[in-house]
Design a protein around this nucleic acid. Structure first.
Length: 525
RNA sequence: GCCCCCGUAGCUCAAUCGGCAGAGCAGCUGACUCUUAAUCAGCGGGUUCUCGGUUCGAGUCCGAGCGGGGGCACCA
Protein backbone atom coordinates (compact mmCIF):
# COMPACT_ATOMS: atom_id res chain seq x y z
CA UNK A 1 0.00 0.00 0.00
CA UNK A 2 1.68 3.16 -1.15
CA UNK A 3 1.10 6.76 -0.31
CA UNK A 4 -1.54 9.00 -1.60
CA UNK A 5 -4.48 9.67 0.59
CA UNK A 6 -4.08 13.15 -0.77
CA UNK A 7 -6.89 14.09 -3.17
CA UNK A 8 -5.77 13.98 -6.75
CA UNK A 9 -5.76 17.18 -8.70
CA UNK A 10 -8.88 17.24 -10.82
CA UNK A 11 -11.83 19.50 -11.36
CA UNK A 12 -13.48 18.15 -8.22
CA UNK A 13 -11.02 20.34 -6.37
CA UNK A 14 -12.36 23.47 -8.01
CA UNK A 15 -15.91 22.51 -7.20
CA UNK A 16 -15.05 21.73 -3.60
CA UNK A 17 -12.97 24.89 -3.29
CA UNK A 18 -15.94 26.98 -4.41
CA UNK A 19 -18.05 25.39 -1.70
CA UNK A 20 -15.37 25.91 0.95
CA UNK A 21 -15.27 29.54 -0.12
CA UNK A 22 -18.99 29.82 0.53
CA UNK A 23 -18.51 28.07 3.86
CA UNK A 24 -16.08 30.82 4.87
CA UNK A 25 -18.51 33.47 3.63
CA UNK A 26 -21.27 32.01 5.80
CA UNK A 27 -19.08 32.03 8.89
CA UNK A 28 -17.23 35.27 8.41
CA UNK A 29 -19.64 37.52 6.52
CA UNK A 30 -22.98 36.24 7.79
CA UNK A 31 -21.80 34.98 11.16
CA UNK A 32 -23.81 31.77 10.92
CA UNK A 33 -22.78 28.28 11.92
CA UNK A 34 -22.97 26.32 8.66
CA UNK A 35 -23.50 23.10 10.59
CA UNK A 36 -26.54 24.25 12.49
CA UNK A 37 -28.06 22.54 15.47
CA UNK A 38 -31.21 21.35 17.12
CA UNK A 39 -34.49 22.55 15.66
CA UNK A 40 -37.94 21.97 17.09
CA UNK A 41 -41.19 21.75 15.19
CA UNK A 42 -40.10 20.65 11.74
CA UNK A 43 -42.85 19.36 9.45
CA UNK A 44 -42.15 16.88 6.69
CA UNK A 45 -42.41 18.39 3.21
CA UNK A 46 -45.47 16.29 2.53
CA UNK A 47 -47.21 17.48 5.71
CA UNK A 48 -46.31 21.07 4.87
CA UNK A 49 -47.75 20.70 1.37
CA UNK A 50 -50.89 19.09 2.82
CA UNK A 51 -51.25 22.04 5.20
CA UNK A 52 -51.64 24.46 2.31
CA UNK A 53 -55.02 26.21 2.57
CA UNK A 54 -56.48 27.39 -0.73
CA UNK A 55 -59.05 29.70 0.83
CA UNK A 56 -56.51 31.44 3.05
CA UNK A 57 -54.29 31.86 0.00
CA UNK A 58 -57.11 33.30 -2.12
CA UNK A 59 -58.32 35.59 0.66
CA UNK A 60 -54.92 37.19 0.84
CA UNK A 61 -54.75 37.48 -2.97
CA UNK A 62 -58.02 39.42 -2.97
CA UNK A 63 -57.20 41.61 -0.01
CA UNK A 64 -53.46 41.93 0.51
CA UNK A 65 -54.13 44.24 3.42
CA UNK A 66 -56.37 41.72 5.19
CA UNK A 67 -55.46 39.20 7.83
CA UNK A 68 -52.95 36.54 6.74
CA UNK A 69 -54.61 33.23 7.65
CA UNK A 70 -52.16 31.07 5.69
CA UNK A 71 -50.77 28.25 7.85
CA UNK A 72 -47.10 28.61 8.76
CA UNK A 73 -44.77 25.65 8.53
CA UNK A 74 -41.16 24.98 9.34
CA UNK A 75 -39.53 22.52 6.98
CA UNK A 76 -36.12 20.99 6.36
CA UNK A 77 -34.55 19.33 3.38
CA UNK A 78 -31.71 19.13 0.96
CA UNK A 79 -31.49 21.79 -1.75
CA UNK A 80 -32.20 20.01 -5.03
CA UNK A 81 -32.77 23.07 -7.21
CA UNK A 82 -31.84 26.69 -6.75
CA UNK A 83 -32.98 29.48 -9.06
CA UNK A 84 -31.78 32.94 -8.25
CA UNK A 85 -33.96 35.58 -10.00
CA UNK A 86 -32.20 38.61 -8.52
CA UNK A 87 -34.58 39.78 -5.82
CA UNK A 88 -36.41 36.46 -5.67
CA UNK A 89 -34.93 33.05 -5.00
CA UNK A 90 -36.71 29.77 -5.65
CA UNK A 91 -35.36 26.51 -4.38
CA UNK A 92 -36.69 22.99 -4.26
CA UNK A 93 -36.09 21.06 -1.08
CA UNK A 94 -36.24 17.29 -0.81
CA UNK A 95 -36.79 15.09 2.22
CA UNK A 96 -37.88 11.50 2.75
CA UNK A 97 -41.46 12.41 1.88
CA UNK A 98 -40.86 14.22 -1.39
CA UNK A 99 -40.04 17.66 -2.78
CA UNK A 100 -41.37 21.12 -1.96
CA UNK A 101 -40.52 24.55 -3.29
CA UNK A 102 -39.32 27.29 -0.97
CA UNK A 103 -39.60 30.85 -2.27
CA UNK A 104 -37.62 33.68 -0.76
CA UNK A 105 -38.48 37.27 -1.61
CA UNK A 106 -36.01 40.03 -0.81
CA UNK A 107 -38.85 42.32 0.22
CA UNK A 108 -40.30 39.81 2.66
CA UNK A 109 -37.35 38.87 4.79
CA UNK A 110 -34.36 40.10 6.67
CA UNK A 111 -31.43 41.14 4.40
CA UNK A 112 -29.09 38.61 6.03
CA UNK A 113 -31.57 35.82 5.35
CA UNK A 114 -31.85 36.84 1.73
CA UNK A 115 -28.08 36.93 1.31
CA UNK A 116 -27.91 33.42 2.75
CA UNK A 117 -30.69 32.16 0.46
CA UNK A 118 -28.82 33.47 -2.59
CA UNK A 119 -25.63 31.77 -1.49
CA UNK A 120 -27.04 28.25 -1.01
CA UNK A 121 -25.72 25.37 -3.09
CA UNK A 122 -27.30 22.23 -4.44
CA UNK A 123 -26.96 19.62 -1.71
CA UNK A 124 -27.01 21.94 1.30
CA UNK A 125 -29.25 20.89 4.18
CA UNK A 126 -31.47 23.80 5.13
CA UNK A 127 -34.36 24.72 7.39
CA UNK A 128 -36.94 27.20 6.10
CA UNK A 129 -40.08 28.60 7.64
CA UNK A 130 -42.98 30.76 6.56
CA UNK A 131 -46.58 30.73 5.40
CA UNK A 132 -47.74 28.11 2.92
CA UNK A 133 -48.81 29.76 -0.30
CA UNK A 134 -48.73 29.58 -4.07
CA UNK A 135 -46.62 31.38 -6.60
CA UNK A 136 -48.20 33.15 -9.54
CA UNK A 137 -47.57 30.03 -11.60
CA UNK A 138 -49.53 28.00 -9.06
CA UNK A 139 -46.70 26.18 -7.33
CA UNK A 140 -47.40 25.41 -3.68
CA UNK A 141 -44.48 26.66 -1.65
CA UNK A 142 -43.21 28.00 1.63
CA UNK A 143 -42.90 31.78 1.34
CA UNK A 144 -39.91 31.78 3.62
CA UNK A 145 -39.08 34.52 6.09
CA UNK A 146 -36.77 32.15 7.94
CA UNK A 147 -33.92 30.36 6.18
CA UNK A 148 -31.07 28.58 7.95
CA UNK A 149 -28.30 26.33 6.79
CA UNK A 150 -27.77 23.26 8.95
CA UNK A 151 -25.19 21.36 6.93
CA UNK A 152 -23.03 22.81 4.19
CA UNK A 153 -22.49 20.20 1.47
CA UNK A 154 -18.91 20.27 0.29
CA UNK A 155 -19.34 17.61 -2.37
CA UNK A 156 -20.67 18.43 -5.83
CA UNK A 157 -23.99 16.62 -6.32
CA UNK A 158 -25.02 14.48 -9.30
CA UNK A 159 -26.51 16.11 -12.36
CA UNK A 160 -30.01 17.38 -11.62
CA UNK A 161 -31.79 16.07 -14.69
CA UNK A 162 -30.22 12.71 -15.48
CA UNK A 163 -29.38 12.12 -11.84
CA UNK A 164 -27.13 9.34 -10.70
CA UNK A 165 -27.44 6.13 -12.69
CA UNK A 166 -24.04 4.46 -12.54
CA UNK A 167 -24.74 1.41 -10.34
CA UNK A 168 -21.19 1.44 -9.08
CA UNK A 169 -21.53 4.89 -7.52
CA UNK A 170 -25.17 4.32 -6.55
CA UNK A 171 -24.38 1.37 -4.30
CA UNK A 172 -20.96 2.50 -3.12
CA UNK A 173 -22.25 5.92 -2.09
CA UNK A 174 -25.75 4.94 -1.17
CA UNK A 175 -26.18 8.13 0.86
CA UNK A 176 -26.01 10.07 -2.40
CA UNK A 177 -28.19 7.59 -4.26
CA UNK A 178 -30.90 7.81 -1.63
CA UNK A 179 -31.47 11.51 -2.04
CA UNK A 180 -30.64 11.68 -5.74
CA UNK A 181 -33.07 8.89 -6.66
CA UNK A 182 -36.42 9.04 -4.85
CA UNK A 183 -37.20 5.42 -5.86
CA UNK A 184 -34.20 4.29 -3.83
CA UNK A 185 -35.51 5.72 -0.59
CA UNK A 186 -39.01 4.47 -1.43
CA UNK A 187 -37.68 0.93 -1.75
CA UNK A 188 -36.22 1.06 1.74
CA UNK A 189 -39.38 2.59 3.18
CA UNK A 190 -41.44 -0.13 1.49
CA UNK A 191 -39.08 -2.77 2.82
CA UNK A 192 -39.51 -1.51 6.35
CA UNK A 193 -43.29 -1.57 6.02
CA UNK A 194 -43.29 -5.09 4.58
CA UNK A 195 -41.08 -6.48 7.33
CA UNK A 196 -43.18 -4.74 9.92
CA UNK A 197 -46.36 -6.30 8.48
CA UNK A 198 -44.69 -9.70 8.39
CA UNK A 199 -43.88 -9.37 12.06
CA UNK A 200 -47.37 -8.20 12.86
CA UNK A 201 -48.87 -11.14 10.94
CA UNK A 202 -46.75 -13.64 12.87
CA UNK A 203 -47.63 -12.01 16.18
CA UNK A 204 -51.35 -12.08 15.38
CA UNK A 205 -50.92 -15.80 14.81
CA UNK A 206 -49.44 -16.05 18.28
CA UNK A 207 -45.84 -16.77 17.27
CA UNK A 208 -43.04 -15.56 19.52
CA UNK A 209 -40.17 -13.65 17.95
CA UNK A 210 -36.78 -14.90 19.07
CA UNK A 211 -33.14 -14.23 18.22
CA UNK A 212 -30.77 -17.16 17.90
CA UNK A 213 -27.00 -17.13 17.41
CA UNK A 214 -25.57 -15.62 14.24
CA UNK A 215 -22.10 -16.84 15.27
CA UNK A 216 -22.15 -20.59 15.56
CA UNK A 217 -19.44 -23.15 16.37
CA UNK A 218 -20.95 -25.29 13.62
CA UNK A 219 -22.79 -23.91 10.60
CA UNK A 220 -25.83 -26.14 10.28
CA UNK A 221 -29.38 -26.16 9.03
CA UNK A 222 -28.62 -25.80 5.35
CA UNK A 223 -26.09 -26.92 2.79
CA UNK A 224 -24.16 -23.79 2.01
CA UNK A 225 -20.61 -22.62 2.43
CA UNK A 226 -20.24 -20.48 5.54
CA UNK A 227 -18.04 -17.51 6.39
CA UNK A 228 -15.49 -18.21 9.08
CA UNK A 229 -14.49 -15.84 11.86
CA UNK A 230 -12.51 -16.21 15.05
CA UNK A 231 -13.00 -15.46 18.73
CA UNK A 232 -9.66 -14.32 20.13
CA UNK A 233 -9.80 -14.94 23.87
CA UNK A 234 -11.58 -18.27 23.46
CA UNK A 235 -9.27 -19.07 20.53
CA UNK A 236 -12.30 -20.44 18.77
CA UNK A 237 -13.25 -20.55 15.12
CA UNK A 238 -16.86 -19.53 14.63
CA UNK A 239 -19.10 -19.58 11.59
CA UNK A 240 -21.56 -16.92 10.58
CA UNK A 241 -24.80 -18.81 10.45
CA UNK A 242 -26.15 -20.16 7.19
CA UNK A 243 -29.53 -20.82 8.86
CA UNK A 244 -31.11 -20.49 12.32
CA UNK A 245 -32.96 -23.80 11.97
CA UNK A 246 -31.13 -25.99 14.46
CA UNK A 247 -31.43 -23.39 17.22
CA UNK A 248 -35.10 -22.66 16.58
CA UNK A 249 -35.80 -26.38 16.84
CA UNK A 250 -33.98 -26.48 20.16
CA UNK A 251 -36.48 -23.88 21.33
CA UNK A 252 -39.29 -26.20 20.25
CA UNK A 253 -37.67 -28.91 22.36
CA UNK A 254 -37.45 -26.42 25.19
CA UNK A 255 -41.18 -25.85 25.07
CA UNK A 256 -41.74 -22.75 22.94
CA UNK A 257 -44.32 -24.11 20.50
CA UNK A 258 -44.51 -21.24 18.00
CA UNK A 259 -41.37 -19.29 17.23
CA UNK A 260 -40.10 -17.14 14.41
CA UNK A 261 -37.01 -15.14 13.63
CA UNK A 262 -36.44 -12.41 11.07
CA UNK A 263 -32.73 -11.95 10.68
CA UNK A 264 -29.66 -12.31 8.54
CA UNK A 265 -28.13 -15.47 7.15
CA UNK A 266 -24.71 -15.49 5.56
CA UNK A 267 -23.75 -17.72 2.67
CA UNK A 268 -20.34 -17.74 1.08
CA UNK A 269 -21.62 -18.14 -2.45
CA UNK A 270 -21.89 -16.20 -5.67
CA UNK A 271 -23.52 -12.79 -5.99
CA UNK A 272 -26.18 -12.06 -8.57
CA UNK A 273 -29.48 -10.31 -9.08
CA UNK A 274 -31.23 -12.40 -6.44
CA UNK A 275 -28.34 -13.32 -4.14
CA UNK A 276 -26.51 -11.11 -1.64
CA UNK A 277 -24.00 -12.85 0.66
CA UNK A 278 -25.95 -11.67 3.68
CA UNK A 279 -29.70 -11.86 3.28
CA UNK A 280 -32.70 -11.63 5.54
CA UNK A 281 -34.85 -14.68 6.15
CA UNK A 282 -38.08 -15.23 8.01
CA UNK A 283 -37.89 -18.63 9.63
CA UNK A 284 -40.89 -20.15 11.41
CA UNK A 285 -41.53 -23.30 13.49
CA UNK A 286 -44.92 -24.47 14.67
CA UNK A 287 -45.27 -27.41 17.03
CA UNK A 288 -47.93 -29.91 15.94
CA UNK A 289 -48.09 -28.26 12.54
CA UNK A 290 -46.67 -29.61 9.31
CA UNK A 291 -45.76 -28.34 5.87
CA UNK A 292 -49.47 -27.95 5.07
CA UNK A 293 -50.14 -25.62 8.00
CA UNK A 294 -47.09 -23.69 6.82
CA UNK A 295 -48.61 -23.53 3.34
CA UNK A 296 -51.78 -21.94 4.67
CA UNK A 297 -49.73 -19.52 6.76
CA UNK A 298 -47.47 -18.58 3.85
CA UNK A 299 -50.32 -18.09 1.43
CA UNK A 300 -52.25 -15.91 3.88
CA UNK A 301 -49.21 -13.87 4.79
CA UNK A 302 -47.94 -13.25 1.26
CA UNK A 303 -51.43 -12.44 0.07
CA UNK A 304 -51.92 -9.98 2.92
CA UNK A 305 -48.55 -8.37 2.21
CA UNK A 306 -49.31 -8.10 -1.51
CA UNK A 307 -52.70 -6.53 -0.85
CA UNK A 308 -51.14 -3.98 1.52
CA UNK A 309 -48.26 -3.16 -0.84
CA UNK A 310 -50.65 -2.77 -3.76
CA UNK A 311 -52.74 -0.39 -1.68
CA UNK A 312 -49.66 1.66 -0.72
CA UNK A 313 -48.57 1.84 -4.32
CA UNK A 314 -52.01 2.77 -5.64
CA UNK A 315 -52.25 5.54 -3.06
CA UNK A 316 -49.02 7.04 -4.21
CA UNK A 317 -50.28 6.95 -7.78
CA UNK A 318 -48.35 3.94 -9.04
CA UNK A 319 -50.27 3.04 -12.18
CA UNK A 320 -48.40 -0.18 -12.78
CA UNK A 321 -50.45 -1.89 -10.06
CA UNK A 322 -53.35 -3.88 -11.51
CA UNK A 323 -55.99 -6.36 -10.44
CA UNK A 324 -58.45 -5.75 -7.62
CA UNK A 325 -57.95 -4.83 -3.99
CA UNK A 326 -58.21 -8.47 -2.97
CA UNK A 327 -56.41 -9.88 -6.00
CA UNK A 328 -53.66 -7.40 -6.84
CA UNK A 329 -51.38 -7.76 -9.83
CA UNK A 330 -47.89 -6.43 -9.15
CA UNK A 331 -45.52 -6.32 -12.10
CA UNK A 332 -42.05 -7.70 -11.59
CA UNK A 333 -39.37 -7.63 -14.30
CA UNK A 334 -42.05 -7.49 -16.99
CA UNK A 335 -44.14 -10.26 -15.42
CA UNK A 336 -47.61 -9.32 -14.13
CA UNK A 337 -47.60 -11.36 -10.93
CA UNK A 338 -51.15 -12.17 -9.87
CA UNK A 339 -51.35 -12.53 -6.09
CA UNK A 340 -54.96 -13.76 -6.00
CA UNK A 341 -55.72 -16.56 -3.57
CA UNK A 342 -55.47 -19.49 -3.83
CA UNK A 343 -51.93 -19.75 -5.11
CA UNK A 344 -51.15 -22.53 -7.60
CA UNK A 345 -50.27 -25.96 -6.20
CA UNK A 346 -48.47 -28.58 -8.25
CA UNK A 347 -46.52 -31.68 -7.30
CA UNK A 348 -42.86 -32.09 -7.93
CA UNK A 349 -43.35 -35.38 -9.73
CA UNK A 350 -46.10 -34.01 -11.96
CA UNK A 351 -43.86 -31.15 -13.09
CA UNK A 352 -41.06 -33.63 -13.59
CA UNK A 353 -43.17 -35.88 -15.79
CA UNK A 354 -44.46 -32.92 -17.79
CA UNK A 355 -40.92 -31.72 -18.42
CA UNK A 356 -39.27 -35.01 -19.25
CA UNK A 357 -42.02 -37.38 -20.35
CA UNK A 358 -41.17 -40.13 -17.89
CA UNK A 359 -41.68 -40.80 -14.21
CA UNK A 360 -39.06 -39.67 -11.72
CA UNK A 361 -38.88 -43.21 -10.35
CA UNK A 362 -37.82 -44.58 -13.76
CA UNK A 363 -34.12 -44.84 -12.88
CA UNK A 364 -32.96 -46.00 -16.31
CA UNK A 365 -34.73 -43.10 -18.03
CA UNK A 366 -33.37 -40.64 -15.46
CA UNK A 367 -29.79 -41.85 -16.00
CA UNK A 368 -30.20 -41.77 -19.77
CA UNK A 369 -31.59 -38.21 -19.69
CA UNK A 370 -28.86 -37.08 -17.30
CA UNK A 371 -26.21 -38.53 -19.60
CA UNK A 372 -27.86 -36.84 -22.56
CA UNK A 373 -27.68 -33.48 -20.76
CA UNK A 374 -24.04 -34.07 -19.96
CA UNK A 375 -24.50 -34.23 -16.21
CA UNK A 376 -21.41 -35.52 -14.46
CA UNK A 377 -21.40 -39.10 -13.14
CA UNK A 378 -24.78 -39.80 -14.73
CA UNK A 379 -24.16 -43.53 -14.45
CA UNK A 380 -23.01 -43.66 -10.86
CA UNK A 381 -24.48 -40.77 -8.89
CA UNK A 382 -27.46 -41.25 -6.63
CA UNK A 383 -30.62 -41.55 -8.64
CA UNK A 384 -32.48 -38.94 -6.58
CA UNK A 385 -29.73 -36.37 -6.84
CA UNK A 386 -29.92 -36.79 -10.61
CA UNK A 387 -33.68 -36.39 -10.43
CA UNK A 388 -33.24 -33.08 -8.63
CA UNK A 389 -30.70 -31.93 -11.23
CA UNK A 390 -33.13 -32.74 -14.01
CA UNK A 391 -35.90 -31.01 -12.11
CA UNK A 392 -33.97 -27.80 -11.67
CA UNK A 393 -32.85 -27.76 -15.28
CA UNK A 394 -36.16 -28.25 -17.01
CA UNK A 395 -39.13 -28.67 -14.71
CA UNK A 396 -38.81 -25.38 -12.81
CA UNK A 397 -39.20 -23.56 -16.11
CA UNK A 398 -42.72 -24.95 -16.50
CA UNK A 399 -43.97 -23.06 -13.46
CA UNK A 400 -46.10 -20.05 -14.44
CA UNK A 401 -43.95 -17.10 -13.34
CA UNK A 402 -47.04 -14.88 -13.10
CA UNK A 403 -48.62 -17.00 -10.33
CA UNK A 404 -47.18 -17.75 -6.89
CA UNK A 405 -46.79 -21.53 -7.04
CA UNK A 406 -46.27 -24.16 -4.36
CA UNK A 407 -44.32 -27.16 -5.61
CA UNK A 408 -44.93 -30.08 -3.25
CA UNK A 409 -43.41 -33.47 -2.54
CA UNK A 410 -39.64 -33.20 -2.91
CA UNK A 411 -37.29 -36.22 -2.94
CA UNK A 412 -36.21 -37.19 0.56
CA UNK A 413 -32.66 -37.45 -0.63
CA UNK A 414 -32.37 -33.70 -1.11
CA UNK A 415 -34.20 -32.87 2.13
CA UNK A 416 -32.31 -34.43 5.04
CA UNK A 417 -34.19 -32.52 7.73
CA UNK A 418 -37.64 -33.45 6.46
CA UNK A 419 -39.95 -36.26 7.43
CA UNK A 420 -40.38 -38.77 4.58
CA UNK A 421 -43.94 -39.50 3.45
CA UNK A 422 -45.39 -42.57 5.17
CA UNK A 423 -46.67 -44.19 1.98
CA UNK A 424 -43.82 -43.24 -0.38
CA UNK A 425 -40.67 -42.66 1.69
CA UNK A 426 -38.52 -41.59 -1.28
CA UNK A 427 -40.58 -38.37 -1.24
CA UNK A 428 -41.09 -36.07 1.69
CA UNK A 429 -43.47 -33.46 3.03
CA UNK A 430 -41.72 -30.40 1.78
CA UNK A 431 -42.71 -27.67 -0.62
CA UNK A 432 -41.01 -24.72 -2.28
CA UNK A 433 -42.81 -21.57 -3.35
CA UNK A 434 -41.76 -19.95 -6.62
CA UNK A 435 -42.77 -16.50 -7.81
CA UNK A 436 -41.63 -14.88 -11.06
CA UNK A 437 -39.01 -17.57 -11.51
CA UNK A 438 -37.49 -16.95 -8.07
CA UNK A 439 -37.43 -19.45 -5.25
CA UNK A 440 -38.95 -17.56 -2.34
CA UNK A 441 -38.70 -20.29 0.26
CA UNK A 442 -39.27 -23.86 1.36
CA UNK A 443 -41.31 -25.42 4.14
CA UNK A 444 -41.06 -28.82 5.75
CA UNK A 445 -42.78 -31.28 7.95
CA UNK A 446 -39.87 -31.49 10.30
CA UNK A 447 -38.11 -34.67 11.19
CA UNK A 448 -38.30 -35.30 14.92
CA UNK A 449 -37.09 -38.91 15.09
CA UNK A 450 -33.50 -38.68 16.39
CA UNK A 451 -32.50 -42.07 14.96
CA UNK A 452 -33.57 -41.21 11.41
CA UNK A 453 -32.09 -37.74 11.79
CA UNK A 454 -28.74 -39.15 12.86
CA UNK A 455 -28.71 -41.62 9.98
CA UNK A 456 -29.51 -38.85 7.49
CA UNK A 457 -26.80 -36.55 8.87
CA UNK A 458 -24.24 -39.34 8.60
CA UNK A 459 -25.36 -40.18 5.10
CA UNK A 460 -25.05 -36.54 4.09
CA UNK A 461 -21.58 -36.29 5.62
CA UNK A 462 -20.34 -39.39 3.85
CA UNK A 463 -21.42 -37.86 0.55
CA UNK A 464 -19.59 -34.61 1.23
CA UNK A 465 -16.45 -33.75 -0.67
CA UNK A 466 -13.28 -32.57 1.04
CA UNK A 467 -14.23 -28.94 0.95
CA UNK A 468 -17.69 -29.53 2.35
CA UNK A 469 -16.28 -31.78 5.02
CA UNK A 470 -14.13 -28.95 6.30
CA UNK A 471 -17.15 -27.18 7.75
CA UNK A 472 -19.90 -29.80 7.86
CA UNK A 473 -19.72 -31.57 11.13
CA UNK A 474 -22.33 -33.58 12.92
CA UNK A 475 -24.18 -31.40 15.39
CA UNK A 476 -24.23 -33.81 18.33
CA UNK A 477 -25.91 -31.35 20.62
CA UNK A 478 -28.78 -30.97 18.20
CA UNK A 479 -29.24 -34.76 18.17
CA UNK A 480 -29.11 -34.76 21.94
CA UNK A 481 -31.89 -32.19 21.87
CA UNK A 482 -33.98 -34.35 19.56
CA UNK A 483 -33.53 -37.28 21.92
CA UNK A 484 -35.04 -35.15 24.67
CA UNK A 485 -38.07 -35.05 22.41
CA UNK A 486 -39.18 -32.43 19.89
CA UNK A 487 -42.86 -32.22 19.09
CA UNK A 488 -43.72 -32.83 15.45
CA UNK A 489 -43.61 -29.49 13.69
CA UNK A 490 -43.95 -27.53 10.52
CA UNK A 491 -41.02 -25.31 9.54
CA UNK A 492 -40.82 -22.47 7.03
CA UNK A 493 -38.13 -20.23 5.54
CA UNK A 494 -38.95 -17.18 3.46
CA UNK A 495 -36.42 -14.99 1.66
CA UNK A 496 -37.46 -11.55 2.89
CA UNK A 497 -35.35 -9.60 0.40
CA UNK A 498 -36.95 -11.50 -2.46
CA UNK A 499 -40.44 -10.89 -1.14
CA UNK A 500 -39.60 -7.19 -0.98
CA UNK A 501 -38.30 -7.30 -4.55
CA UNK A 502 -41.51 -8.91 -5.75
CA UNK A 503 -43.80 -6.51 -3.91
CA UNK A 504 -41.89 -3.36 -4.83
CA UNK A 505 -41.04 -4.38 -8.39
CA UNK A 506 -37.33 -3.88 -7.76
CA UNK A 507 -35.46 -6.02 -10.22
CA UNK A 508 -32.31 -6.60 -8.16
CA UNK A 509 -31.77 -7.61 -4.57
CA UNK A 510 -29.35 -4.71 -4.13
CA UNK A 511 -32.15 -2.20 -4.59
CA UNK A 512 -33.90 -3.49 -1.48
CA UNK A 513 -30.80 -3.76 0.72
CA UNK A 514 -29.53 -0.50 2.18
CA UNK A 515 -25.86 -1.42 1.79
CA UNK A 516 -25.38 -4.40 -0.54
CA UNK A 517 -21.94 -5.96 -0.61
CA UNK A 518 -19.51 -4.26 -3.00
CA UNK A 519 -15.92 -5.18 -3.58
CA UNK A 520 -13.76 -2.45 -1.97
CA UNK A 521 -12.52 0.19 -4.35
CA UNK A 522 -8.92 0.13 -5.54
CA UNK A 523 -8.63 -3.32 -4.04
CA UNK A 524 -4.99 -4.33 -4.07
CA UNK A 525 -4.01 -7.05 -1.63
C1' G B 1 -14.00 -19.92 -10.48
C1' C B 2 -15.32 -19.42 -16.12
C1' C B 3 -17.30 -16.54 -20.55
C1' C B 4 -19.05 -11.88 -22.82
C1' C B 5 -19.57 -6.50 -22.44
C1' C B 6 -18.22 -1.78 -20.17
C1' G B 7 -14.74 2.11 -17.67
C1' U B 8 -13.79 9.58 -21.35
C1' A B 9 -14.85 16.46 -16.97
C1' G B 10 -18.37 16.43 -10.48
C1' C B 11 -22.92 13.99 -13.22
C1' U B 12 -25.21 12.18 -18.08
C1' C B 13 -22.99 11.13 -22.54
C1' A B 14 -20.26 12.13 -27.74
C1' A B 15 -15.48 11.52 -30.33
C1' U B 16 -15.76 8.63 -38.19
C1' C B 17 -10.62 4.39 -40.57
C1' G B 18 -5.51 5.01 -35.29
C1' G B 19 -4.72 11.77 -36.61
C1' C B 20 -5.28 18.63 -32.10
C1' A B 21 -10.48 15.12 -26.34
C1' G B 22 -16.13 17.56 -27.11
C1' A B 23 -21.45 18.74 -25.52
C1' G B 24 -25.38 19.40 -21.93
C1' C B 25 -26.00 19.92 -16.91
C1' A B 26 -23.11 21.61 -12.48
C1' G B 27 -19.15 25.35 -11.24
C1' C B 28 -17.18 30.68 -11.38
C1' U B 29 -18.30 36.35 -12.72
C1' G B 30 -22.35 39.57 -13.97
C1' A B 31 -27.92 40.80 -15.05
C1' C B 32 -32.95 39.70 -13.55
C1' U B 33 -39.30 39.99 -8.04
C1' C B 34 -42.96 34.55 -10.08
C1' U B 35 -39.06 30.50 -11.68
C1' U B 36 -40.25 24.96 -12.69
C1' A B 37 -34.17 21.21 -16.42
C1' A B 38 -35.46 29.43 -15.45
C1' U B 39 -33.22 32.70 -19.05
C1' C B 40 -29.24 35.94 -21.02
C1' A B 41 -23.76 37.49 -21.44
C1' G B 42 -18.84 35.98 -20.29
C1' C B 43 -14.98 32.41 -17.99
C1' G B 44 -12.60 28.08 -16.19
C1' G B 45 -12.65 22.57 -15.90
C1' G B 46 -9.28 16.01 -18.40
C1' U B 47 -3.74 10.80 -15.30
C1' U B 48 -9.69 9.11 -21.39
C1' C B 49 -9.53 3.25 -14.66
C1' U B 50 -4.01 1.50 -13.93
C1' C B 51 0.56 -0.58 -15.81
C1' G B 52 3.04 -2.26 -20.05
C1' G B 53 3.31 -3.01 -25.52
C1' U B 54 2.57 -1.94 -31.05
C1' U B 55 2.87 2.71 -33.91
C1' C B 56 5.55 8.72 -36.66
C1' G B 57 1.05 9.12 -33.74
C1' A B 58 -3.40 5.37 -29.05
C1' G B 59 -9.61 7.38 -25.78
C1' U B 60 -9.51 4.03 -30.16
C1' C B 61 -5.25 -1.73 -31.49
C1' C B 62 -2.65 -5.82 -28.21
C1' G B 63 -1.38 -7.94 -23.09
C1' A B 64 -1.90 -7.88 -17.82
C1' G B 65 -4.29 -5.85 -13.56
C1' C B 66 -8.37 -3.16 -10.84
C1' G B 67 -13.57 -2.03 -10.66
C1' G B 68 -18.53 -2.55 -12.64
C1' G B 69 -22.66 -4.92 -15.64
C1' G B 70 -24.75 -9.42 -17.79
C1' G B 71 -24.56 -14.76 -18.21
C1' C B 72 -22.78 -19.62 -16.41
C1' A B 73 -21.17 -22.40 -12.25
C1' C B 74 -21.81 -22.61 -6.95
C1' C B 75 -26.36 -22.10 -3.96
C1' A B 76 -31.22 -28.69 -0.14
Amino acid sequence: MTASNAPEADSTDDLVAARRQKLRFLKEELGVDPYGGRVEGISSLKDARDAFDESAHLALEEDPEGEDRRPRRLVSGRVMQHRDMGKLVFMTLRDHTGDLQVSVSKAACDPAIFRLAKKLDYGDVVVAGGPMGRTRKGEICVWADRVEIHAKSLTPPPEKWHGLSDPEIRFRRRYVDLHANPEAILALQDRSRIVSRMRSFMERRDFLEVETPMMQPMAGGAAARPFVTHHNTLDLDLYLRIAPELYLKRLLVGGLPRVFEINRNFRNEGVDRSHNPEFTALEVYEAFGDCWTMMELTESMLHELAVASAEDRRQRGDESVGGTADAPILPFDGIPVDWAKPFVRVTYSELFTRAHGFDLQDEAAVRAKAAELGIEDAATRDHWLLVDDLFEREAEDLIDPARPTFVTGYPSAVSPLTRPMADQPHLCDRWDIFVAGMEVGPAYTELNDPEIQQAKFSEQLSGADDEAEAFRTLDEDFLTALRVGMPPAGGLGIGVDRVVMLLTGMRTIREVIAFPLMRPEGGSE
